[in-house]
Structure formats: structure tokens, C-alpha cells
Amino acid sequence: MAKTKTAARGKPEKQLHDAAWIAKQVDAFSKDILAQGLVDRAMVVGIRRRGAELARRVCKQIGAASKLKVPYGALNITLYRDDMSLRGPTLREKSGTEIEGPVDNRVIYLIDDVLFTGRTIRAAMDLLMDFGRPGAVRLYEIVDRGGRELPIQPDRVAERLSVPLADRVEVRLKEVDGQEGVFVVVGGMR
């Protein structure tokens, strides 16, 4: 396990996984979705930004493996957050929500990077419901780090971690972060 230190934040961090591991999980998610046999009703939706990027990769992978074009969606949950009174109205994502086609009766594969309190997923589900009535919503997470505050559990998770609440688990993607991997930033939650 390589230990590195990010100069920008000055907090020690360790890398748990690399780009190849993330690619393997994207591949596994795609195969899993195909294996469920619902691909003609499927829609792959990610939560901006990293979840949306992962969803885009999953869509691409499914397309390459099956020649099927699965609709894609990216959710901006800013307006559904429940912590505006704590964190203020700061905009974390600059792109809006985009969903290819109606969600009614679709099996939504909701892709996210790190599952923590569950509040983001609650917000994402509320947002999805404003677009229609999905047939089902399945939650796929790269990392579940524990610490849930709401009764929300993933349908599939690549890795479960047990880390102190003060540490921050990050899935970094090159399109968003310029580097790729799973990291734990010690004391990263402030």
C-alpha cells in the first residue's frame, strides 16, 4: 500500500486501488447489468460528477459488449440536498441534470462512487421520481464506507471499507480529478 501526501491539502492519504481496479469494477458492473436480462428496459444513471462519469463508462461498456444502446442519465442533486442550512447554497456541480428519454417503467441502475450517509442517494431518488415512475431503482456503488444515517443499502458494491468517520474516502477519476484510484484521506472530513 503506497503512502502519499497531497501537497495541496497537506493531509496524509493512502491509495487503496489503482486505475486498473476501477476499470475492473466498471466491467463487472456492466456484465452484472447485462446478466440481469433487463437491458432493453435499463437506464444507467450516475450522480454528478464522479458517478455520472462512472455511469458513462458503464454505458459504453454495455454498448461494446452487447451492441445495445442503453440510455444514460446524469443527476445534479444540488436542489434536492437537505444540508443547505448547514453548508449554504454553494453549487458543487456546474452541469444540470440530463436524462435520455423517459424514466417510466425503466430499471434504473444508479451508479455512485462512495456510499456514506445515504443522503445523496435519498436526494437522487427524489430527483428521479420527479422525472416519472421508474420500474425499479438499483444502487451500484464502488465503495461503501459505512456511516449510514438513512436506511439505504446498495444492491451491488465493489468494496466495503471500515474507516474512521473523520477520514474521507475518495474515488478519483481522471476526467474529474486528473488521477485515477481509490484513496483514503486521513482526517479528510475536517
Binding site: T78, L79, Y80, E98, D130, G132
Partner: peptide, 12 residues
């Protein structure tokens, strides 16, 4: 995009 949805309302 909110104005283009069928349900043009968000809970913010």
C-alpha cells in the same frame, strides 16, 4: 433544465 421537465418543481 428544471423549466423543461414535466414536473417543474424542486424542493430546494
Amino acid at each position: 433544465e428544471v423549466s423543461g421537465r414535466s414536473v417543474k418543481k424542486v424542493p430546494a
